[in-house]
Amino acid sequence: MALAHIKLAVYQPQHRQALCAYRLPENQLPFAYQPYQWLSEPLASELAINAHLCAVTVLADGQPVGFFVLDNGALCLNHQRQPGAVLLRSLSINPAYQGQGIAKAAVAAHRLDAVVRQHDPDSQRLILGVNRCNTVARDLYLAAGFYDTGVYINGVAGAQHIFQRKFA
């Protein structure tokens, strides 16, 4: 199957139904909030009023198939501000579309960095936490040019490696 045309767009209310309809498989649940969790109360109110948060939809051939949140807030990571950094949170792809290269296309530097800079023009790098057990995500981010900083934090589902990628 040919890879769909992938685009990242700031979340729009018309994306809600498709994003809230999918549920991640049990083995992925510990690693990310699902879109319906972000788009339901109380997180939906937080997204609406917090200028540090930006919800992003992954579109495949114009259809919402994935979701993540960008966060450049004061509590960016492990309750410490990371100057110049934007935190990538809760990337997920609808299970019906997984395995087609959509996540890889979504985190490709030319695509992801553009939407990050739209959210925070002064940003210098992306950071994220990858659970040590989530080898699929680890491999995805390494292939997209992120590197493991060697810093670890305790997350809800255990130890997380802190990855980052600086902008060119």
Rank of each mutant, 00 (worst) to 15 (best):
L43P: 01
Y147K: 04
L112E: 03
G84D: 00
R117N: 02
A51V: 03
K104W: 08
G129S: 09
V116T: 10
S90G: 02
D148V: 07
V107M: 04
N131G: 02
D113G: 01
Y147N: 03
V69A: 12
P42R: 15
L75M: 04
G84M: 00
V130T: 07
L140S: 08
G150Q: 08
A144R: 13
L140D: 08
G129W: 12
R132G: 02
I49N: 06
L140K: 05
C54P: 00
Q98C: 14
L43F: 08
C54M: 04
Q63P: 01
T135Y: 03
C76G: 15
L128Y: 10
R132P: 00
G145Q: 12
S92W: 04
N50K: 10
V136T: 15
S90T: 02
R132H: 13
D148G: 06
G99Q: 13
R111A: 01
Y141N: 12
V56I: 14
L47C: 09
A137F: 09
R81G: 00
A106N: 08
A144M: 13
S92I: 02
S123T: 09
G145C: 07
L53E: 01
V115A: 06
R81W: 14
L128T: 10
I93C: 03
C54E: 01
I127A: 00
F146D: 06
G145R: 12
H119A: 15
A108Q: 12
V136H: 12
A44K: 14
T149E: 12
C76A: 14
Y141P: 12
R81L: 14
A60F: 05
F68T: 07
R138K: 15
L142N: 02
T57S: 15
A74C: 11
D113Y: 03
P64L: 11
L126I: 15
C133E: 06
D61R: 05
N131F: 08
A55G: 14
V151D: 10
L70A: 09
L47M: 10
H52A: 15
R138A: 14
N134C: 08
L77S: 02
C133T: 00
L140Q: 02
A114N: 01
L59W: 01
V56Q: 07
N50Q: 09
A109N: 02
Q80L: 10
A106Y: 04
H110L: 05
R132V: 15
L140F: 06
D148N: 14
T57F: 05
R111K: 13
P95N: 02
Q124V: 07
T135L: 09
Q80M: 06
L43M: 15
L53F: 08
L53K: 13
A85Q: 08
F146Q: 03
H110T: 10
A48F: 09
S45C: 06
R89V: 02
L91T: 08
A143R: 15
L77R: 02
Q98A: 13
A105N: 09
T135D: 01
G145N: 10
N50M: 01
G73V: 00
L142D: 01
A114T: 08
L75K: 11
A55I: 07
R132N: 03
G66E: 00
R132K: 13
A60N: 07
F146V: 05
K104G: 15
C54A: 04
K104Y: 11
G73S: 09
A105T: 04
R125F: 06
C76S: 15
I102G: 03
D122W: 09
